[in-house]
Design a protein around this nucleic acid. Structure first.
Lengths: 359, 359
DNA sequence: CTGAAAGCGCTTACAG
DNA sequence: CTGAAAGCGCTTACAG
C-alpha cells in the first residue's frame, strides 16, 4: 500500500541537470566535495521545488548507518515508580538525538520477557546504539553485545562493568538528604532503603547515609535501618516495624518517594505526625511528591538531564569520539517542602512551597 | 565504525547449500512458496547456527515497507498534564506494534517547533504510519499528508475531519461523573472545564455535564460554570471566583484532575472542606489523584487502551484492512475515592480506598 | 519445489 | 569541479 508517489534523487538530478552523485554530495553537504556555488544552488532549488526527501532505507543501506538510537525500557517490579522517570528520560534522549540528527526507537521490555530479546535491534541493524534503562546483571547477551563493540549506554550502573553508563550521584544525593536533617538538629535518623541492596543505587544511597552520619560523628545504628522495596506497601511495613523501637527515630530518610508515601501514611496513622513529630526526606522527586500531604521534601533526580546525557554519550560513542567520561554521574538537588519541618512560610495559592536548595 | 561483523543472507544460503531466494522465502515464511520440509529445516538450522539477523535497511528498501510506526508527541501548554498520559499511551502503542511485528519511533514536538516538521518521518519513509497525539487544527501539512493517503491516526479528535482517531468517550465520561454526584443527592453542581472549549474534549465534557443535568430535570445555570486551563492555577482561580456566588454549589465536577488539584486547595483554604461541605469529582485519573488529600474521585482514562487502539487501528490501515470503525471511542470508568463524599469505610494501610465503579 | 536476475534508492571510491 | 559505476543486502516476479 504505497499510496504516495515518492520523488527520488534521480528526479532531482534531472530537474537540476546534474548527476545523482552531485545531488547526493550537495544534499549531504559533504565537506570536501567542492561543488560550485551555482551548481549547488540549482540542486537545492530543484530539491525544494520537488519537495524531495531522501529514502531512509536506501540511505541506511548504502551508508551503513541508521542514524537511529534506541531506548530499551525495562519495566520494574513497581510500574508506577518507573513511569515517573519515563517522560523526562525519553524527552532528554529525544532532544539529544534530534540535536545530532538521530531518530529514536522506543522498545519496552515486558516483565515476563526473557533477557536480551532487544538485541535484535542491534543485530538486525535497526539502530546504531542502545540506551538500556534498568539493566539486569544476569543479562549475558548484553555483555556479548558490548564485547562485540556495539555502542551501548546504561541508565543505572551495573556492578563491575566497563559498559558506559549514566546515573545520578546516589551517594552524594543521600548525603544531602541526611545532612539536611542533621542541620535541623536531628540525631536519631532512620533509613528506609529504596530497594534491596543488591541494587547498586540502593547500596549507594545507604553508603551516603552512613557517610553523612560518620562525618557528623554519629555512630551507625543498624536498628534504625529498614529495607524498602520500590512500593508504598514496603514503606508502610517498614515504618510499622521501625516504630516498635523503644526510641524511634526523630527523622527518617527514605531513599525512594514511592516508599516514602507509604511510610508517611503509616507514620500518620501511628500518631507520629509529619513533620511535627517525625521529619521525613525522600528521594527521586516523583510528581506525586508535590501533591502528597505533607508535601515531601526530597532529593530531585534530573530525569531530563539523564536522558540527554545518555543520548549524547551514546552518539559520541557511535561516532567514534573518545568520550572523556565513560560513567556519567549527575548531581541531584534537595527540594525542601513540608515533610522535613523546614518548610518556607505557608503561602496560599495553588502551589505548595517548593524552592530548591542547591547543594 | 562498524565494529561488528554481520552475517548476511548469502552466508546462510551457502551454509545451507541453497539459493538466497530460498533463504528469504523460508525466513519470511512466505505462504505460497512451497519449500520442502527438509530444505526448510536446513535453512532454519543454518540461520540459527550463524545467528543470522536480516538487515533492516536492506529489507525495507527491497520490500518498500518499514514495519515501523511513529508516535508524534505534541507537548501541551502544561507539561505535567501530558506527562501523565505518556507512559500508558506509549506502552499501549508499543505492545500493539510488537504484536504485529512493528517497531515504534518516538518523536516529540517541542512547543516552539513550527507545525508539521514531523512529516519528514513520512516523506523520508522512516515509518509506514503515524500516531499523532495532540493534533493541531491549524496544521495543514497534516491534512496534506492525509490527502496523500499516508496512514494516520490521531489521539484526540479534530473537528470536521475524516482522519481516523482514538479517544475516550468524553460525553459519557462527564455524564458518569455528574450522575454520581446527582446520585449522592447534589442538585447545585458546578462545573470547571479542563480547558477552553475550543478544545474538542473540553466542549464534549461540558456537553456531558449539561446532558446529565438535563436528564435529571435540572436547568443548566451558566453561573455555576467556570473555565479551567490545564493547570492547578486555573482551578484555584476558578474556585475562588465560584465562591463569590451567594449560593455556591454543593458539588463541583472538574473536568481535569490537574485543575481539580488546584481547586481542592482553594476550597480548603476558603473553608469549604472537601468532601464534607463540597463534593468534588475530577477527570483523567492522573497518578497524583490517588495521592492528593482528600484522594480524588475521578473519571479514569485508559491510557494503555488508547495507545493499544491507536496502534492497532494504524496497523490495520497500513496493511489495507478496512477498519469498521474509523473513530474509536473508549469507555471511561468512575473511580470513587474520597473527594466525592461517597468513600468506602476508611481502611488503614498504604493504599487509599480506590475501588472502581463500572458505569 | 528451487534458482538466476532485476531492482529497491541511495553513497562512495574512482576517474577525469 | 563533476559523472559513470559499483555496491549496500535484501525481496520478488519470473522461469524452469
Amino acid at each position: 500500500m504505497r499510496a504516495c508517489a515518492y520523488v527520488t534523487q534521480r528526479q532531482v538530478a534531472e530537474e537540476a541537470g546534474v548527476s545523482r552523485t552531485t545531488v547526493s554530495l550537495v544534499l549531504n553537504a559533504v565537506p570536501d566535495a567542492h561543488i560550485s556555488p551555482p551548481t549547488r544552488q540549482r540542486v537545492l532549488d530543484a530539491a525544494r521545488r520537488l519537495d524531495y526527501y531522501p529514502d531512509a532505507a536506501a540511505r541506511r543501506l548504502a551508508s551503513g548507518k541508521t542514524r537511529t538510537i534506541a531506548l530499551v525500557w525495562h519495566r520494574a517490579p513497581d510500574q508506577t515508580y518507573r513511569d515517573a522517570f519515563l517522560p523526562g528520560l525519553l524527552d532528554g534522549i529525544s532532544r539529544a538525538a534530534r540535536r545530532y540528527g538521530y531518530h529514536v526507537l522506543f522498545r519496552p521490555v515486558a516483565v515476563d520477557e526473557p533477557n536480551g530479546t532487544y538485541v535484535e535491534l542491534a543485530r538486525g541493524r535497526h539502530t546504531d546504539g542502545l540506551v538500556l534503562s534498568g539493566p539486569r546483571s544476569d543479562d549475558d547477551r548484553l555483555h556479548r553485545l558490548h564485547a562485540q563493540g556495539f555502542p551501548l549506554v546504561l541508565h543505572g550502573r551495573l556492578q563491575d562493568t566497563e559498559i558506559p553508563s549514566v546515573d545520578v550521584d546516589n551517594v552524594r544525593g543521600a548525603m544531602t538528604a541526611v545532612n539536611h536533617l542533621l542541620g535541623l538538629g536531628h540525631r536519631r535518623i532512620g533509613l528506609i532503603t529504596n530497594a534491596p541492596t543488591v541494587y547498586a543505587a540502593s547500596q549507594q544511597r545507604l553508603d551516603g547515609y552512613r557517610r553523612a552520619l560518620e562525618e557528623a560523628d554519629i555512630v551507625y545504628d543498624e536498628a534504625l535501618v529498614r529495607q524498602g522495596n520500590f512500593d508504598e506497601e514496603s514503606g508502610y511495613t517498614a515504618v510499622i516495624d521501625l516504630l516498635t523501637l523503644k526510641h524511634p527515630p526523630t527523622a527518617v530518610f527514605i531513599a525512594s518517594d514511592m516508599v516514602a508515601i507509604g511510610a508517611l501514611r503509616a507514620l500518620q496513622e501511628q500518631g507520629f505526625s509529619v513533620p511535627s513529630r517525625t521529619a521525613v526526606v525522600g528521594f527521586d522527586d516523583i510528581t506525586a511528591a508535590r501533591f502528597i500531604t505533607p508535601a515531601l521534601t526530597t532529593v530531585h533526580v534530573p530525569t531530563f538531564g539523564l536522558g540527554w546525557s545518555a543520548g549524547e554519550l551514546l552518539i559520541r560513542i557511535i561516532e567514534g569520539d573518545q568520550p572523556h567520561q565513560i560513567h556519567v554521574e549527575l548531581d541531584t538537588e534537595l527540594v525542601v517542602r513540608e515533610s522535613c519541618g523546614a518548610a518556607p512560610p505557608h503561602r496560599p495559592g495553588p502551589l505548595r512551597g517548593c524552592y530548591v536548595n542547591e547543594r
